[in-house]
Design a protein around this nucleic acid. Sequence first.
DNA 1: GATGAATGAGGATTCATTCAT
DNA 2: AATGAATGAATCCTCATTCAT
Lengths: 183, 183, 183, 183
Amino acid sequence: MVFAEQGFYQSTISQIAREAGVADGTIYLYFKNKDDILVQFFTYKAKQVFDLFREEVATADGAIEKLKNLVRRHLDEFQRDKNMAIVYQAETHQNSRSAEPQIREMSKMYLDIVSEIVEQGQADGTMRKDLYLSLVKRFILGAVDETINNWLHSGGKYDLRSMADPLIDLFIRGIGNNNVNNS
Amino acid sequence: MVFAEQGFYQSTISQIAREAGVADGTIYLYFKNKDDILVQFFTYKAKQVFDLFREEVATADGAIEKLKNLVRRHLDEFQRDKNMAIVYQAETHQNSRSAEPQIREMSKMYLDIVSEIVEQGQADGTMRKDLYLSLVKRFILGAVDETINNWLHSGGKYDLRSMADPLIDLFIRGIGNNNVNNS
Amino acid sequence: MVFAEQGFYQSTISQIAREAGVADGTIYLYFKNKDDILVQFFTYKAKQVFDLFREEVATADGAIEKLKNLVRRHLDEFQRDKNMAIVYQAETHQNSRSAEPQIREMSKMYLDIVSEIVEQGQADGTMRKDLYLSLVKRFILGAVDETINNWLHSGGKYDLRSMADPLIDLFIRGIGNNNVNNS
Amino acid sequence: MVFAEQGFYQSTISQIAREAGVADGTIYLYFKNKDDILVQFFTYKAKQVFDLFREEVATADGAIEKLKNLVRRHLDEFQRDKNMAIVYQAETHQNSRSAEPQIREMSKMYLDIVSEIVEQGQADGTMRKDLYLSLVKRFILGAVDETINNWLHSGGKYDLRSMADPLIDLFIRGIGNNNVNNS
DNA sequence: GATGAATGAGGATTCATTCAT
DNA sequence: AATGAATGAATCCTCATTCAT
């Protein structure tokens, strides 16, 4: 996918069309304009990915287990579809984009899933009650995102999925030495 | 700053010049080309910001205190210079940018500072020894970044700096309920 | 043709396009860039003109007759296509042109034809054997060129072709008074 | 001189100024505008060179001797001042130049000198009477010009002046084999 | 539906020229 | 007289979009 390599705005309709194996004009039979390609791409991908996420979370028991599955699946999917990962990383950090609504929606869906998990964790006593929820969800999303971002910038060589467990561990236990404090 | 509002590549030289109160051609007396504006901007800002960061870390005692100061300062500076924040967020998540070297350098400097802090924390017993260091540093950077990113997408209304302490708390203690484990 | 009137480098793409009855962008469907217009023009013309020259020379008997035909045809063609004549005159006397290879090739082809003729003339005894060949061919090309150049600078009013025979006469007999020598 | 290397129109005022060791603005104290540099250059050079030519012709006896001296001096001067040669070659073959009047004047002066010589030659019986004068003078100028042009395109390596005598020989005797005709 | 040639607005960059110092 | 920073008109080229076939 061209706009994974050079960014969506640096890609031309000609490149996109050639890659799709159609003529330039044909693009306009399916997309209103160039921006609409991005919008539809995100709309389609969002649905696809979030269905997976929801399903993954639903099949797990316990908040921590749900969180583990979510993060694993997240890393897994982005590893599987590196192009989507690149486009997602690039576009979620711009503003005044035409795909802004789609991106906000995706972010929101993700944050909602995390919120639900944390709230469940608080309810069943596996997570701290004194958490600043709106911060926690971003803290988790941010850490996962940056893990993906770094994987991308490194060229996507190593196994991204293997980062899931250590990452969850940091979410759950933090980096402080609890043994010291609790001794 | 125009390219904070519409992204650097969506801004025109005319807009940038008008905003700077000079003629289009004048831009080229100070910058080799359009890309060079971004490069010089990051080079200049990086030096300025990292001097502050280093200083902030140096004046604190103890790893946790250092980390607090760093994160506070980070949020503080990005809150103070919102335009820089926007541009930084946008450009650090693109690839094949001309400012790539500057951005990699900035990232690396940041990660190095965090590494040093964590290593010190491990040495003085305030941080866990069983940490995956290269993951931890990105986990911290990612969480801070996403906090800033969200603040930006919300329009920069609330006080970003106030996020520092709860964020550090999450880094240190995690979200797991240690009381349960330790009871 | 605009660049006949003002020189190729003084013409703008807009002018060239307007004259061709197409939009500016259309030019770039057929030419790589502005320079390529000149290159293609020469490549095309060179082939066309030199095919004529070769043919003209082939159909004549005897070196002197061949030379006459060549010069006649040369003047004839440049008279017929005055724009080409202007561009040719202008560009063959510049250096570091992008069309340089085409121009060198055209010059070389011309000089080669003349060389062959002169060598044949020497073989059949109609031309002097003590000739400095590489000078002779330039001497002929130069004289024809300047004849064309002057015709152009005079506005192309008079009949250029009528210069052919007197010019050949000068090539063959020179301006010296042989009768005096031979008396 | 910069505009010998890249042509006058491809040279910038900055380059010309730097080479002259003055600031850009200073150029405008001495020249009305960029074109005026070319105009003044030709005006100055023309006077200088033609004074030499006239002198050279005056000091010789006999038309053929005068012609020899003129051609020698011409080649000599252009060899000595290669930059002038390049600029002269380039600009005399363009039209709608601002230096056009200067160039026409230079051409005319040259052709006038040649005319005078030929007329004298006809009067004293060393040159043919049946010459088409306006053609002869261009034939001579063209041949000399092309000799210079070729020397320039070859990089100006060999001794240009040594071409003078063989060239004159061609002017005088032509390339035809008179012995054959006169036997 | 599909094509791809043609369009022309838009944008980066250059550079002759000016003018305050 | 000399400077050189600033100007902005001018120009090449790109590319999203259209539309006749």
